[in-house]
């Protein structure tokens, strides 16, 4: 920081990624959740309750197969989006983010820690919801339920990534919650849950083609209808995973070490 050039020292003197710090961060996030049992209960039980409700709203097996599978892909996205945006907003507001970034913690460590912690919660949530849908509720899955779980996990990562990114633009928890309809609802309407995407107006179909949730729901339906993983499934999973990684990287850029 000599002369009038503000210094932007490169972080070359320490590793960009440290497993110890990442794991410590994930453990800390989970520990914070553990002090909030009501949130855990809501995260785990609400998807199950919705599936149960859905099963009896659509009294036909056929409709439940399609919509139930889509919902399994949608829940992790919404839950993790909300939880992450609020958690990181709090981290920004409480000054702990400023403190952490003044410590030898890489941004990648912090983000990977969050992704790991919420990914673990998503696995638990999806396992419960998938098990409930497949066995007691009789969701007909031609493929392996493990693949459903994989898509759910990728979805959860996408939700975490979007939540992290959006929290940079929210000045309060009110705003953060309002980002949910703004970011998630359009994807929900266009993902093929209500109308098949091929039946949409071409413009809307084109928009739905660039929204990641469309691919998550497509992927889920591929597993429901095909015994073996299809190439379409592989493409869907890669797209959702790729989007998650891209948005996580964008989210990392919003973690500023410096106060303006």
């Amino acid at each position: 920081m000599t002369t009038t050039h503000p210094a932007t020292p490169t972080a070359t003197t320490r590793p960009a990624f440290s497993p110890t710090r990442t794991l410590a961060t994930a453990a800390r996030v989970l520990r914070q959740l553990r002090h909030d049992p009501r949130t855990i209960a809501l995260m785990l039980l609400v998807p199950c309750a919705m599936l149960l409700l859905l099963r009896y709203v659509f009294d036909s097996d056929r409709a439940f197969d399609t919509i139930g599978a889509s919902l399994l892909g949608i829940f992790p996205l919404i839950t993790m989006f909300l939880v992450t945006s609020i958690a990181t907003l709090r981290e920004r507001a409480s000054g702990t983010l400023e403190r952490l970034l003044a410590l030898p913690l890489g941004k990648a460590d912090l983000i990977a820690g969050y992704a790991l912690a919420f990914g673990a919660v998503a696995v638990l949530q999806s396992t419960l919801a998938t098990a409930l849908a497949v066995w007691p509720l009789g969701l007909d899955v031609a493929g392996s339920p493990w693949l459903l779980l994989l898509v759910a996990l990728l979805d959860a990562l996408l939700g975490t990534a979007l939540g992290l990114f959006v929290s940079a633009f929210a000045a309060s928890e009110f705003q953060a919650v309002q980002f949910m309809p703004a970011v998630i609802f359009p994807q929900l309407l266009l993902c093929g849950l209500f109308t098949p995407r091929s039946a949409m107006h071409p413009v809307l179909e084109a928009v739905s083609d660039v929204l990641p949730l469309s691919y998550a729901v497509d992927g889920m339906n591929q597993v429901v209808h095909h015994t073996d993983p299809t190439s379409a499934f592989l493409r869907d999973a890669l797209i959702v995973g790729g989007c998650a990684a891209l948005v996580l990287a964008l989210g990392a850029a919003t973690l500023r070490r410096r106060t303006p």
């Binding site: 920081m1 020292p9 972080a11 003197t13 320490r14 400023e98 003044a102």
Partner: peptide, 26 residues
């Protein structure tokens, strides 16, 4: 001094490094 303030100008040396240097974080 800690290196979390954006756009300082002039010179600020902390423990032998320019302020905000990653080596200072610990």
């Amino acid at each position: 001094v800690v290196g979390t303030q954006a756009r300082p100008t002039g010179t600020l040396t902390v423990l032998g490094h320019p302020a905000g240097h990653p080596a200072l974080r610990s």
